[in-house]
């Protein structure tokens, strides 16, 4: 009973925060509120016993994406542009898709139903076999690291590559930026412009 009301409170808090984000004009407030949104969503996941999902939501949603938004905010003005349009067709499309999703949600199995399709397919085998086979106490870790090891490796490679790309873009060491730097420097001392470019592209890495 208490758990039900905690869920009701948290979900309505999410709705309130969402409306605040929509109506707010200050970008820094929007970033701060979206951090609060992810922490609330993580609390909902904890309430539903999905602790690992909640960890990810808290780390990525509230931690890293807030930092990335703030880093991007340095290149933007403080306020959102004033002329906000409200296209009626987009609203209608959103409402229709939302109603369809709510109707589809009624066909989902009950929360925690032991006969749900997700619980009768391979999950019993994982629960029964995983500890005797691999001796890892957490079943979720076992599935991710042992049964789907190659899949997890691929995901890690993708995320790592994306992270390298973002770091390169934000630190400004792409080729065009380095050439621009070299140009401004060679204008200052116009002795050996071509040598400067080669030296700079080597130094910046």
């Amino acid at each position: 009973m208490v758990e039900f009301w905690v869920n009701v409170f948290l979900v309505s808090l999410l709705v309130i925060i969402t409306f605040n984000i929509m109506r707010n004009k200050r970008l820094i407030a929007i970033v701060a509120l979206s951090g609060a949104y992810s922490l609330t969503a993580a609390a909902i996941f904890v309430n539903m016993d999905a602790v690992d999902v909640a960890f990810t939501e808290a780390a990525v949603g509230s931690g890293i994406s807030t930092i990335l938004f703030l880093a991007a905010l340095r290149y933007l003005p403080v306020e959102e542009a004033h002329e906000t349009r409200y296209p009626i067709w987009s609203l209608a499309l959103c409402v229709i898709v939302g109603v369809l999703l709510i109707i589809a949600a009624f066909a989902l199995p009950e929360f925690g139903d032991p006969n749900a399709p997700a619980h009768v397919h391979v999950a019993p085998r994982y629960i029964a076999e995983s500890y005797p086979l691999f001796h890892i106490p957490n079943v979720v870790t076992n599935v991710l690291a042992s049964y789907r090891g190659f899949d997890t490796l691929g995901e890690t490679v993708v995320v790592f590559t994306a992270g390298i790309g973002v770091i390169l873009l934000l630190s400004g060491s792409t080729l065009s930026m380095r050439l621009k730097d070299a140009d401004t420097k060679s204008e200052e001392n116009s002795d050996n412009a071509s040598g400067d470019i080669v030296k700079n592209s080597g130094d910046d890495t």
């Binding site: 820094i28 970033v31 922490l39 509230s62 931690g63 807030t66 930092i67 703030l70």
Partner: peptide
């Protein structure tokens, strides 16, 4: 863990705020 993340987030906001 949430307390650590919360602290880091606030620190990041203060660090990056123009």
């Amino acid at each position: 863990l949430y307390a650590i993340l919360n602290f880091l987030g606030t620190l990041a906001i203060l660090r990056f705020y123009p």
